[in-house]
Design a protein around this nucleic acid. Structure first.
Lengths: 332, 332
DNA sequence: GTGAAAGCGCTAACAA
DNA sequence: TTGTTAGCGCTTTCAC
């Protein structure tokens, strides 16, 4: 490994001078600059970021904690983050929420991460743990965690409202919700909005038609399938079902078909997220569309700002409602 | 930040002793061990990995270069890697193949990554670049890159063989292939096997029915849709189509439906990867199933081995063929 | 303008 | 058995 010392020796200058031309923070005579730059090129010298980090106490390394990177919802968010991060010289590491939250917290501290994104759908860390995690440093949150750091979130409330208007227009009255995670999850906007809007439209809140999945709450197609089977077994004669996300909707559609019911003639299905397959399946899925990559981008931008100025913000990103073919008029 | 020095002072021992109890490599009297451990707990001391790395020249940090993490194919591989990595105290950072391969190479060097996985479907780096990348260190490859590092790959050849047997049994003779990436891609096993097996079964190689996508080769549902439209326009009267992956198959199915054709009565469709949606869509997709998470796991295991012993291996993972409802007898 | 040197937190060889 | 100390490669202050 070639170090700054090697460069200095070959260029006949001091190590400090090499640093100065590298950082461009101090004036160095053009002759030396050139000489040093030549040697750097010649030796193909690459500064050691680890050493720099130790000295500056800035690692330019951030982490993102996600539920399940194999879910495109999270991976697209991660993609957005990575793009912005990369443009700013940051490296991003991925931590999967697995067994032990403490483990990630520990690693994040020991690695001296400059920042951390929390992109999970539950409350995996307590505020206390969070604060400790980066010793009062910047922490990013996607699901809301007041006071700890900036937040970037989707305006699900608004999205759910548009969806409910749509369903009501189509005369749906008995509407189920495959909510995936526990109703009691803090800041569970989709759930809260769902209830609020049922009430607003004076529709019944059918408790037995709001189906939570079992831990570990994968909220994937399989959870959706199971939940929908359960919902159909209740015999509640719902005419429409809202699903936490598109994979769950996909599973739900399968369950519906297996019962010999048609979509949307017998049951309308609404998903959430507008994942890549939503427009391709048959029938194409009506869904809420959230700007996932943009969220990742915004999150990283907020992190950068927070690291720079200490300012914390709460960003809310708009949600679109996309009507496709999986919703139709309620049957009589 | 509390350092080892703080611990030493409070415990009334030397910094070395603290290290010794931490590393457990040297005997320390039980009394001191306890004293030190108490102080560590009291101060909530966390060793600084950055500093350790600088000293040991091991970062316990690996990188993975992927095409598109938003593709579950890659994200599941990443998941497998991460799990094993995490179990061994490694952190994994993700690099997205974007504009500039050089950029990742540089970052990997400067960050002193211990290892690097290359999980892309093209030849983004030359062997030369690779070698330089980690100064003859361990590099992992998913698509084959002889001599540079260990490889882990899927036995696509075998999978394609099973698939072709299936199609031939169903009397398909004119078979298309949405191959996504250029046919000329090195080690393009699926393509090579496809050709080989057509010949083996004495079926025609319909050049105009092997559709490459356009750069940047996203090989997603949209590429599949476009490619299938193109294929149908050739009027080649194919009765079956093999797709590079499941998302492309999904797009292809949409294109087929739009032309008023039925699956599988008019055209049989085969995907590849067995992604999560394959079994849920209608008709359920016949596809090659590859153990993605297992591949990630194996890759990390190989990396660990390579870092430990220097041994390089070539692992080949089996591929299953899963018959579902998107394939049926060829029409007359 | 340039360079010497202290220090970032930790490891590990060597002393005591 | 425990402690001293010289690095690891880089930054940065402060002399010269």
């Amino acid at each position: 490994m070639t170090t700054r010392k090697d460069v200095a020796k070959l260029a006949g200058v001091s190590v400090a001078t090499v640093s100065h031309v590298l950082s461009k923070k101090k004036y160095v005579s053009p002759e030396l600059v050139e000489k040093v730059e030549n040697v750097i090129r010649e030796l193909n010298y690459q500064p050691n970021i680890i050493a720099r980090s130790l000295s500056t106490k800035k690692t330019h390394h951030v982490g993102i904690i996600v539920n399940n990177i194999a879910n495109t919802y999270y991976s697209e968010i991660a993609l957005g983050m990575s793009k912005v991060a990369s443009d700013h010289g940051y490296t991003v590491s991925i931590y999967f929420v697995g067994d032990d939250p403490q483990k990630y917290a520990t690693s994040a501290i020991q690695r001296q991460l400059d920042g951390l994104f929390i992109a999970t759908n539950g409350e995996f860390f307590t505020t206390e743990q969070m604060k400790k995690m980066l010793s009062a440093n910047m922490v990013f949150v996607n699901s809301v965690m007041p006071g700890v750091g900036s937040t970037v979130s989707f305006d699900y409330g608004n999205g759910v409202e548009k969806m409910m208007n749509h369903l009501v227009e189509l005369n749906h009255q008995r509407i189920g919700f495959l909510c995936g995670i526990p109703k009691s999850t803090p800041n569970f906007l989709r759930y809260k909005s769902f209830i609020r809007l049922l009430q607003k439209h004076q529709l019944p809140v059918l408790e037995e038609c709001i189906i939570e999945s079992e831990a570990p709450y994968r909220t994937d197609q399989n959870d959706g399938y199971i939940a929908m089977k359960k919902l159909l077994k209740t015999n509640s004669r719902i005419t429409a079902v809202f699903c936490l996300n598109d994979p769950m909707a996909l599973g739900a559609m399968k369950a519906i078909r297996e019962e010999g019911l048609r979509i949307p003639q017998d049951i309308s299905v609404v998903g959430c997220d507008d994942q890549f397959f939503a427009s391709c399946i048959e029938p194409a899925l009506t869904t809420l569309s959230v700007p996932k990559e943009e969220m990742g981008r915004q999150a990283m931008i907020q992190l950068l700002k927070q690291m720079d100025t200490g300012e914390k913000d709460d960003i809310i990103l708009g949600v679109d409602f996309i009507v496709r073919d999986s919703t139709g008029p309620a049957p009589n």
